[in-house]
Write a protein that binds this DNA or RNA. Structure first.
Lengths: 338, 338
DNA sequence: GCTGGCACTCGACTGTCGAGAGTGCCAGGA
DNA sequence: TCCTGGCACTCTCGACAGTCGAGTGCCAGC
């Protein structure tokens, strides 16, 4: 077990390195933080920390920088979550309150998060399966073609065009619409398959195949979890680190363009509480020099989706975590209100 | 007026520079293209081209690179649009045909364009005002709150929540829904304000204020041109040029994040035909070292939105223009079918 | 009007060197 | 036992000088 002072030294190293982005030496440490011991002592502690794998030297006779393991310890034991200031909270609330629809909420959130943390922000659209149904609409576009529109309690809207095997009358359609809504409104999307299972049977023989087609499309839309949408922003912030990682920016940008990767990334954090994945803890190759801070958000007490930021491992963890948590909270409020 | 051969020299310089990304000298030129004249002659031509401002030297005793003016001449007079190959066209068609809804079409298009051109792709969602109304839906969420859903012929869906000053019965709502649809379905959105103008007057006094509120929100949604959405992709391609412009990437990324800037960018090209804006021809500061190739696309013969790519001024113009044109054409087809 | 030749320029690259920062280790002291 | 000051060592970084080569402009000759 590391002594109290050594932990203190690690904390100091992380803080200094995050601030200056340069390897930090023993002398500078004792000067900037009042550690009450000499540089020589700190050097001994550093040697011990290096031995344990918490810090490393880029090369002999350079200062130390934290390793992924060092950041992990810092996040777990040494750092809290830094709450935002009152004015900041107020600003967030005001900014989000101006949104007119879900798209707007999401795009505002992503901009907000990118600006607050000065990093790349990711916001997932509320998941279909974890939302509840507000309304299902069926519109006749042509005799054998109709549009299916799903509206969730979080304001999300999905639409699909369905080609029907046989023409459908307006009456049958109205009937289907009414019965469908009667069964599913207010229910969670994940329950929908079970609820509509026997619906075709209650219709005339002639219409069954068409109704089945409609329901199949409906279920297919729900199953399409991979189609979960998300929005990213603040990629320009990546260039803030271009001076030491000119070649690292490319794989990160590439990873960010692959929705699948990002969804997996957010999905990995199992529960909806705040999760921090540091450097190599991220499975994806392009992201091994970045950290991901994510948290679930939702209109109620249950998370319907996640949001977070991606930044260099050398990030201000307490501040970032504070911002992410605050934004998630306010987005939840906004969604609950609408 | 420049002689035929000098134009040929300019063309050769542009082609070589685009290929190698390095200043091109007289000797290399005569070797790579069979110009049938000696390097010395080419040097004279180059001096003339430089005099006219078509090419420039980064520094004395280096090769020449084209100026914006040089690219402009190249695009206008020397280069055609390079059509895509059959397999490429087929691949585009197949890829786009797999889309399930408008969001999917747009996101596939942006990926496709980025991949084909290896540059940053921008795709604008079909404009509301230039589309026609397929359906207007009104849903009662709560006694004094309803949701307005607009569906366009291009498959775009917009929704807004409306808070009503007074409760509305289902009957009134159905009435409103029917009359509203009766008036506007099939019409262009730009006509909607005129068409619904006198609608409140045909209702009972009690409901008029509510109906006005609904209509106000409807019109507001239409007026919100700045809310025109667009999607970008392929930003990772920017890093392909990071070696010579490590500092240029940042303003570009910043510009790309500002939807307003991009919309203005696409909007500047007035008609829907192919437009190329080179370097300083772009008003926005961050984009003065990039070129923008854009074109309108639409489900019919009229453009409902634009798409294009942003790349370095040193880009393969014929190839890029070919890809942009082809993609726009196929997207138009897909939209017309759905 | 084209060509070969020639002198010139300037950036890219290389090797050397000193300054400075940081380290590890050791012996002495609380 | 733990901290401290001192000292020799290592390594990076920037400055500087010198070389190399690509490319140019100009000129005389065909």
């Amino acid at each position: 077990m590391l002594s109290e002072r050594r932990l203190e030294v690690l904390r100091a190293i992380v803080q200094d390195y995050v601030g200056t982005q340069e390897p930090v030496g023993s002398k500078a440490l004792t000067e900037r933080h009042n550690l009450k011991v000499s540089p020589a002592t700190v050097r001994n502690d550093m040697a011990a920390l290096e031995e344990e794998g918490y810090i490393a030297q880029p090369h002999t006779s350079a200062g130390r920088i934290p390793t992924d393991k060092g950041y992990r310890l810092f996040v777990d034991k040494l750092a809290g979550v830094k709450p935002l200031s009152k004015p900041e909270r107020r600003a967030i609330q005001n900014f989000l309150a101006g949104a007119v629809d879900l798209d707007d909420v999401v795009s505002r959130t992503v901009r907000l998060l990118a600006q607050l943390t000065r990093q790349v922000a990711i916001v997932q659209y509320p998941s279909l399966t974890r939302s509840t149904v507000r309304h299902v609409e069926l519109l006749l576009l042509a005799p054998t073609r109709l549009m299916l529109v799903l509206i969730t309690d979080t304001g999300r809207v999905e639409q699909r065009v369905v080609d029907c095997p046989a023409p459908l009358t307006e009456t049958t359609l109205a009937d289907l619409r009414a019965r469908l809504n009667g069964r599913v409104v207010g229910e969670r999307f994940s329950e929908v398959p079970r609820l509509v299972q026997d619906l075709p049977e209650s219709f005339e023989q002639d219409d069954r195949s068409t109704i089945s087609a409609v329901l199949a499309t409906l279920l297919e839309t729900l199953v399409e979890e991979p189609e979960e949408r998300l929005v990213i922003g603040g990629t320009a912030n990546l260039t803030r680190f271009v001076h030491d990682f000119p070649l690292t920016i490319r794989p990160v940008l590439e990873a960010l363009e692959e929705q699948v990767v990002l969804l997996k990334l957010l999905g990995e954090a199992k529960d909806s509480s705040m999760t921090v994945r540091i450097g190599h803890e991220n499975a994806h190759e392009g992201l091994t020099s970045t950290s991901v801070v994510s948290v679930g958000y939702g209109s109620g007490n249950e998370a319907v989706a996640k949001l977070g930021v991606v930044g260099p491992t050398r990030m201000d963890y307490p501040g970032t975590m504070g911002a992410v948590r605050a934004v998630a909270r306010y987005v939840g409020q906004i969604l609950a209100e609408s």
